[in-house]
Simulated assay, not measured.
Amino acid sequence: MSTAPAVGTGALADALWRAATDGDEHAAVALVRAARDGGLDEETLLLDVIAAVQARVGAEWAAGRLAVTREHAATTVSERVISALAHDRPAAGGPGGPSAGRVAVACVDGEWHALPARLVAEVLRLRGRPVDFLGARTSTAHLVSHLHRTGAEAVLLSGSLPTLLPAAHAAVTACQAVGVPVLVGGRAFGPDGRYAHALGADGWAPDARTAAAVLDRGLALPDPAAARQAVDALPHLADQEYTFVARSRSRLVRQTLAGLEERFPALRAYTGVQRERTAEDLAHIVDFLTAALYVDDPALFSTFLCWTADVLQARRVPAYSVVAGLGLLGESLRDFPRALRLLQAGSAALTDHILPPDPGIDPAAA
């Protein structure tokens, strides 16, 4: 969130954190209801308490201090708390106004993290705007069909993973093609919305309050020719490197895993679960490489690699082995200059970011 939390919400967020990570739905709902009844407005509860708890959940998981099962349980509790607040609210929502036209709030196809979009939807409802919340993994075809059926005046599209930028691009251009502007938000679109602009979205918002303000000001209807001209903003796609890497994902992962086993014999003793996790990590690297190829931005790839290194080191896994994996990918993609530049830039950023290899860490412990 770019806005500062309201005074007095810190202690409440701590208490909600404990209830959420304990999986105690009833305690969590009681906490927020008591705070609301005590005078704390619902928008503050949603954005400065529940969203703050979820941000902490993600940070603690990344640092290796919260098991994935507890992360999932905490997220489920947060969703239940939001639902409880919504069910307590009068059906009419807020005061509304002449500018409060119907909007559709959806997640990019493939996006499982629906809670940020749900928060946006609830804030808009609080402000009196009719909202159709379509949830996670909304296919572009279903989204466009919904627009035809309901006549929504705008789409708010949420995405957390840059790997979904191609799918987001397809959704943006499809909505614009039927005359509906698109406001995007979420980490997928970059900290300053750089990828939102690159993909031709009609607006970008870093948080729910900003999204509401943008809608209040009004989103301009897109130029009917925008969908046809959108590809002009990404001329680098003409080299087909993105397409090749995306289609070669499985082969690249297999080749890289085999190469790592040759260079790090300890990997040969991995259990089936360890091999599966290593393959998943390699698949994520390839996915982020393809996303960086799509928008032609080395920073997207390098940022992901450094984040991955932090997660691995928090789990006492040797992050320097990722550098070797990048080298092996480079050997497989030696005929693709843009991919090679991204791999080289990523390797340099990663080398600068990680600590020197720790002799106390056994690669076989990954």
Rank of each mutant, 00 (worst) to 15 (best):
M1V: 10
M1K: 02
G10P: 05
L12K: 01
R18V: 15
A19M: 07
T21P: 05
D24A: 09
E25F: 04
H26K: 10
A27D: 15
V29F: 04
V29Q: 05
G39I: 10
G39V: 14
A55N: 12
G58C: 09
G58S: 06
R65H: 12
R65M: 12
T69W: 06
E71D: 01
E71N: 03
E71R: 03
A74I: 07
R80G: 14
S83P: 00
S83R: 10
A86W: 13
H87M: 10
D88W: 01
D88M: 01
R89W: 02
P90S: 04
G96H: 06
G96C: 12
A100D: 11
V103R: 06
A104N: 01
G110R: 06
A114N: 02
L115E: 07
A121T: 03
L126H: 13
V131A: 01
L134W: 08
L134R: 14
H142F: 14
L143Q: 03
L143M: 09
S145Y: 00
S145L: 01
A152F: 04
E153L: 07
A154P: 13
V155F: 05
L165R: 07
A167F: 05
A168W: 09
A170T: 15
A171T: 08
T173I: 00
C175E: 03
C175V: 06
Q176P: 01
A177R: 08
G185A: 14
D192C: 13
A196C: 05
A196F: 08
G203F: 04
D207V: 01
L215V: 03
A220S: 13
A220R: 08
P222V: 11
D223W: 00
P224D: 04
R228F: 12
A233T: 03
L234K: 02
P235A: 02
L237S: 10
E241V: 11
T243Y: 05
V245I: 00
R249M: 11
S250D: 15
R254I: 05
L257G: 01
E261I: 00
F264W: 12
F264D: 04
A266D: 07
R268A: 08
G272I: 02
R277C: 07
E280Y: 02
D287A: 12
T290G: 08
Y294R: 11
D296S: 09
D297M: 04
C306E: 14
T308I: 11
T308A: 15
A309N: 11
A309V: 12
V311N: 07
S321C: 11
V322E: 03
A324K: 11
G325E: 07
G327A: 02
G327M: 10
L329K: 10
E331D: 14
E331T: 13
L333N: 02
D335W: 00
L340G: 09
L340K: 06
R341F: 01
S347Y: 00
D352N: 13
I354E: 12
L355I: 06
P356Y: 09
P357T: 08
D358E: 09
I361K: 09
I361L: 15
D362L: 12
